[in-house]
Design a protein around this nucleic acid. Structure first.
Lengths: 255, 255
DNA sequence: CGGCCGCCAATTGTCAACAATAGTGCCAAA
DNA sequence: TTTGGCACTATTGTTGACAATTGGCGGCCG
């Protein structure tokens, strides 16, 4: 039943270029991996808070936007649902996920579990070039914040954690962190406090400085504190939160 | 530019915030989530080393086996490729993944990053019922090992780590660990030493005992040691037989 | 006048046919 | 005998149409 073939250790078969088909329509050039492109675009839009939680993602709509078939969109949406960026309701469609408070807490707990020791593992393994690059990134974050560019600020802020993970040179860990960061963006979009625009002053800079030579224990503490700080800046408090919200909505506007 | 406008409108303002899911139907188990069933079956087969790395997974073959259409199988295979259980070669098909040595190391490094602090977080949070359950599981592991039931032994051994993660009551962390354990099974199937049938004497039992009341620091050490032990029992040393060797030979000859 | 219950439009889920591609074996020519 | 090319076959990738389900909407009844 099972054809246990000998493991093929030949060269990778990704070298074929198929540019035979002349595109009569404005279809984007990169045919292969179109699903990947859709996936990344939506992730990015969600991370930058341009697609708010609850937004419906109709298959036909997206297919028309990207100039691809529905099947491709389905693939991308399925992928997004596996990473908890969107929620699929059978026979109803795909919606940008609305993580529950419990899930939000779980995501941040996972980050507190993974990222502090991850950052600590970088101590003494970063050259001056890497530290320089990190400082530049932090500088860009500050610039975006000063320029009131909320979108860019949010993106860079999340990207900082992904870059740290990449510096570990462990793709497995990087993928995990990338997923957690994306979900965090969704959570922040959903639960951020109204007033406080951006609650993270410059803890990233502090962390980079500490990575210069402080002991691992200090790094762990800073990262843990930072993540707790971000989580504490959200409205994840009460189970009674729903009632209050409803009443506020009803009182504010009689729809 | 790329995604000019939000492709969809927001959810209606007056709509209920809670998802009103109608689950009144007993849901015939075969129809909905058929792809999920295929996915889990293949994962399990891989975890139990019944599907060796490199095995070709033809769409038509699997579709016939499960009595479903090819589309369903494609979905499952795509899911499997996202979790790095299978590798998709364009126009060639799906194969059970053959993790490289580098990837194998990365997976175990990720586990050493996540699981020790995860286990430590359970200290003092487990009731006697949970500890009892864990001990029963370890007993089952030993029984399977004594009975030479390699398949069951492997499955239970991996499941132990998943159960530990589940006890954290954090579904995010549980999913991460589940993925890492599955990939580890693949790695073990590929790189286990010929002679040593099972190199983990009873470190799980030791860990459960320690979870009874030992301090977190001890738990961390035991789990870290256990994971290092498992990794050390594999042949991850050298360029063994892999592509590096081949490529070197070819490069030397061709020129 | 309000609530209930049937169509109806829209969207998703499924499938089957079609097109394209890579691997395989054969055949002819050097 | 070896090598290069070529057609064939089996499998994957893609598309489009069709069926099923949902939620809305209007009419009907209480």
């Amino acid at each position: 039943m099972l054809n246990a073939s000998t493991p093929s250790r030949r060269r990778k078969p990704g070298a074929s270029r198929r540019t035979r088909r002349i595109d009569t329509r404005p279809a984007p050039p990169s045919r292969p991996e179109a699903a990947q492109r859709i996936y990344e675009n939506i992730v990015r839009a969600v991370e930058e808070h341009r697609l708010p939680p609850g937004t419906k993602l109709g298959e036909q709509t997206i297919a028309a936007l990207f100039g691809v078939s529905r099947a491709r969109v389905r693939q991308a949406l399925h992928h997004l649902s596996l990473t908890h960026i969107v929620t699929l309701h059978p026979n109803r469609g795909a919606f940008v996920a609305e993580p529950s408070i419990r899930e939000a807490r779980a995501v941040f707990a996972a980050r507190r579990l993974v990222e502090p020791p991850l950052a600590a593992s970088l101590v003494g393994r970063l050259g001056s070039a890497e530290l320089q690059s990190l400082r530049r990134h932090v500088g860009a974050e500050e610039a975006a914040r000063s320029a009131q560019d909320r979108r860019e600020s949010i993106r860079l802020s999340g990207e900082f954690h992904v870059i740290l993970a990449e510096l570990s040179a462990n793709t497995v860990v990087t993928d995990i962190v990338r997923g957690l960061v994306a979900r965090s963006s969704l959570i922040i979009a959903l639960y951020q406090r109204a007033g406080s625009a951006d609650c993270a002053p410059d803890e990233h800079g502090e962390l980079v400085d500490a990575l210069g030579g402080r002991p691992a224990r200090v790094i762990v503490r800073i990262m843990d504190h930072h993540l707790r700080h971000v989580e504490a800046s959200l409205r994840l408090a009460a189970p009674a939160h729903a009632e209050v919200d409803l009443r506020a909505v009803l009182g504010a506007d009689a729809r």
